[in-house]
Measured scan of single mutants.
Amino acid sequence: AQVHVDGVTYDFDNPEEAEKFAREMAKRKGGTVEVKNDQWHVE
């Protein structure tokens, strides 16, 4: 699973880890999390 944050792509073998990371980053940035094509996007 991939997580996109500020133009940087992070690869995770485990989708749950990807989701956890995406939500944590969004919380830190005060942003939102979107899922597109099985990829997490932190805005």
Rank of each mutant, 00 (worst) to 15 (best):
A1K: 13
A1T: 14
A1R: 13
A1Y: 15
A1V: 13
A1W: 15
Q2R: 14
Q2Y: 07
Q2G: 02
Q2P: 02
V3Q: 00
V3A: 02
V3N: 01
V3W: 00
V3F: 02
H4F: 13
H4N: 09
H4S: 08
V5R: 02
V5T: 02
V5L: 10
V5W: 08
D6E: 07
D6Q: 05
D6I: 02
D6G: 10
G7T: 01
G7I: 02
G7E: 03
G7F: 01
V8G: 02
V8I: 12
V8Q: 11
V8M: 11
T9V: 15
T9I: 14
T9A: 07
T9H: 06
T9D: 04
T9E: 05
Y10Q: 01
Y10S: 01
Y10V: 04
Y10R: 03
Y10L: 04
Y10T: 02
D11R: 11
D11L: 14
F12N: 00
F12Q: 00
F12P: 01
F12M: 04
D13W: 04
D13P: 10
D13R: 01
D13Q: 08
D13K: 07
D13L: 09
N14P: 00
N14T: 14
N14K: 04
P15N: 12
P15V: 13
P15M: 12
P15Y: 12
P15G: 08
P15R: 12
P15I: 13
P15W: 14
P15Q: 11
P15L: 12
E16N: 06
E16F: 10
E16I: 10
E16W: 12
E17S: 05
E17F: 02
E17K: 02
E17A: 09
E17D: 13
A18F: 01
A18Q: 01
A18R: 01
A18H: 00
E19F: 02
E19L: 07
E19K: 00
E19G: 00
E19W: 04
K20W: 09
K20R: 12
K20D: 11
K20Q: 11
K20Y: 06
F21Q: 03
F21P: 00
F21H: 03
A22M: 08
A22T: 03
A22S: 01
A22D: 07
A22G: 01
R23I: 12
R23K: 13
R23A: 09
R23V: 09
R23E: 14
R23S: 08
R23P: 08
E24Y: 03
E24T: 01
E24K: 04
E24Q: 06
M25I: 12
M25A: 08
M25N: 04
M25L: 11
M25P: 00
M25Y: 06
M25D: 03
A26R: 03
A26I: 05
A26F: 00
A26Q: 07
A26T: 02
A26H: 04
K27F: 03
K27T: 11
K27E: 13
R28W: 06
R28T: 12
R28E: 12
R28Y: 08
K29A: 12
K29R: 13
K29G: 10
K29N: 13
K29P: 05
K29H: 15
G30Q: 08
G30T: 05
G30H: 11
G31T: 11
G31L: 12
T32L: 09
T32P: 05
T32I: 12
V33P: 05
V33R: 04
V33N: 05
V33E: 04
E34W: 14
E34Y: 14
E34S: 15
V35D: 05
V35N: 09
V35T: 07
V35I: 13
V35M: 14
V35L: 13
K36W: 13
K36C: 15
K36R: 13
K36P: 04
K36Y: 13
N37S: 07
N37K: 09
N37R: 07
N37G: 13
N37F: 11
D38Y: 06
D38G: 15
D38S: 11
Q39G: 15
Q39W: 06
Q39A: 12
Q39P: 05
Q39V: 14
W40H: 07
W40V: 06
W40K: 05
W40L: 09
W40F: 13
H41R: 10
H41A: 09
H41C: 15
H41M: 10
H41S: 08
H41G: 03
V42M: 05
V42A: 05
V42L: 04
E43T: 15
E43W: 13
E43H: 14
E43N: 14
